[in-house]
Amino acid sequence: MFDFLEGYDVLGAFWTTVQLTVLSAVGALVWGTLLAAMRVSPVPLMRGFANVYVNIVRNIPLTIIVLFASLGLADIFGATMGASDFKIQGFRLAVLGLVGYTSAFVCEAIRSGINTVPMGQAEAARAIGLNFSQTLRLIVLPQAFRAVIGPLANVLIALTKNTTVASAIGVAEAATLMKTMMENEAQTLAIGAVFALGFVVLTLPVGLLLGWAGKRLAVKR
């Protein structure tokens, strides 16, 4: 019944999807947190930069960002991302595009988390002599993160599915393989179902786990 799967490395393709997701998630979390820190910083230039970045990037379709990373950065400006061949270069450019795009959403989720932390927390931190970055790192962000685990789970799930856009620049992830298989095999519906199921298997546990963690780690006030 599943003989149409023969000869295709479905697991391998999904493994690439997982790699894209994990690397982009880590990158987006780091860069998004930095952006959120800039958005609440006392330096107007940083606030302005993060504000403009978020509002531009989140309003551009991901496909265009990923294509720009490939056609713009790589082909015109010659950014090879330190890669030796096109496959690795495409993968890294896709991660770059996904990080740049997803971080805008991570930033906004974290910023809304920062807004849930009462002013008094930061005031108390400053009153014992913590500087701005210590106040943010030790007091405000830990509480902000716990408040937005749910929204961050949404961003992560969206990111997992968004990795399929990498097929636009030829990265051999799940959607690329699905397209190939649909061209070569007759059972298009079954193929679609297999890949849809594959994504649900990836994202469902993430949502459930993070939902549970969000409840458990919530800061009691």
Binding site: Q121, A127, R146, R221
Partner: peptide, 29 residues
């Protein structure tokens, strides 16, 4: 920041760090 460390402040709404234990609140600074 250095000067603030020399000036203790107690607030109307306590403002204890909600994600840290009582001991950690006193240790942190």
């Amino acid at each position: 920041a250095r000067l603030r460390a020399d000036v203790g402040m107690v607030f109307q709404s306590f403002n204890l760090f909600a994600h840290k234990t009582v001991l950690e609140n006193v240790v942190l600074g």
